[in-house]
């Protein structure tokens, strides 16, 4: 099975424009793919500003930015996996293990350990370890990534449950709490962490082999392989980088909550995939990027925030994301339909 892969479609149909046509057509499609999500974000903001007087206040903008920070960090990592044409369903598990490990490694109510920021680094490293394992399993055993990462997610949640052991570890570390509540220029410090991760993601995407090869592999894996790119190594590296960002996201959630829980990442996996897809990072690989995904993150966050403000039940949010992600993929994949195309 080749999930999200375009089956027998010729390579040039990897873009949203579809079958080869006169040269102006793909350009227009590229512009649509690049700036369509941004337009949607602006429209959404205008719409909610009309529907709810609270939406366009500085306090709410700060809310949106603060609540987008965790999802943004996840989306940066996920983008590299999606660029490969792979998918990552392990986010909830990795975040759970990272959340519990950081909660048990810094000053807490369960044990006497106090590694401070080394504990944070350790949790990020554990996340990277999970990503490395997913990557090695996918490339080494040749298992589709959605299957390996689904398994890794269960393993992560299992380890977190074992670490949790029935007693919730509460953080007792004032300097870590300061990161969640302390503000610089009106925004919480975690928002700046997210901005820093996005900048790192952009630099990695633009100036390192990881970023460039990830796009090349996702665009046409066969060509990448034939031109001598060590495909397996860079795939594994992309998963590892992604795992590290999920680990950091788990730490961020833990500092926000003040305690480590197994449910730290619940709902984030789907939200991140939705954000990436809505932002224009295609699941078929090779298209999109960190900035696309961040626009998607803002769309998803604004949507959640706006729906709550206009009084829609919070239970609907998951369902709304489900509809949006399927609709977005249907719309981008619609021109590629062919009678003999195999999609599993």
């Amino acid at each position: 099975m080749a999930p999200a892969r375009l089956g027998l479609a010729p390579p040039e149909t990897g873009r949203a424009a579809g079958s080869p046509r006169p040269s102006r057509r793909p350009d227009r499609a590229t512009i649509l793919a690049d700036f369509g999500p941004l337009g949607a974000l602006v429209l959404l903001c205008i719409l909610f500003a009309f529907l709810s007087p609270q939406f366009a206040t500085w306090g709410n903008v700060r809310n949106v930015l603060d609540s987008a920070s965790v999802l943004a960090v996840i989306a940066v990592g996920l983008t590299f996996v999606l660029l490969l044409g792979a998918i990552d369903l392990s986010i909830e598990g990795v975040m759970a293990t990272a959340a519990l490990s950081v909660a048990l490694l810094v000053a807490n109510s369960r044990n006497d350990l106090d590694f401070g920021f080394m504990g944070v680094l350790a949790a990020v490293a554990i996340g990277a370890g999970f990503g490395l394992a997913s990557g090695l399993l996918s490339t080494g055993l040749k298992i589709p990534s959605f299957m390996t990462t689904l398994g890794m997610s269960a393993i992560g949640i299992g380890i977190a449950t074992v670490l949790f052991g029935g007693v919730q570890p509460a953080l007792r570390s004032p300097e870590l709490a300061e990161w969640a509540s302390g503000q610089w220029f009106g925004l919480t410090r975690l928002t700046y962490v997210a901005v820093a991760v996005v900048l790192i993601g952009l630099l990695v995407q633009r100036y390192t082999r990881l970023g460039r090869y990830a796009r090349a592999i996702g665009g046409a894996e066969e060509l990448a392989l034939l031109s001598g790119i060590p495909v397996r190594r860079y795939k594994t590296l992309a998963f590892t980088f992604a795992g590290a960002t999920y680990g950091l996201a788990g730490v961020m959630v833990t500092t926000q909550l003040g305690s480590g829980i197994v449910q730290a990442g619940v709902g984030q996996n789907f939200a991140a995939i939705t954000a990436a897809v809505v932002g224009g990072t295609l699941l078929s690989g090779g298209r999109g990027g960190v900035l696309h995904s961040i626009v998607g993150v803002l769309i998803v966050t604004v949507l959640v925030n706006g729906l709550v403000l206009i009084g829609v039940s919070p239970y609907v949010q998951g369902a709304v994301q489900g509809v949006i992600v399927v609709a977005a993929v249907v719309i981008t994949a619609w021109p590629l339909r062919k009678r003999l195309r195999v999609v599993k």
């Binding site: 789907f270 039940s313 998951g318 992600v325 399927v326 994949a333 999609v343």
Partner: peptide, 27 residues
């Protein structure tokens, strides 16, 4: 129907479905 007609990978359609049906159940 979405999987076959729109040719969207099945894991994605059913992942979206997973979220939608959970939402319906919660609501």
């Amino acid at each position: 129907a979405i999987h076959v007609v729109a040719q969207v990978p099945s894991f994605l359609v059913t992942l979206g479905g997973l979220a939608v049906w959970s939402g319906v159940a919660l609501l």
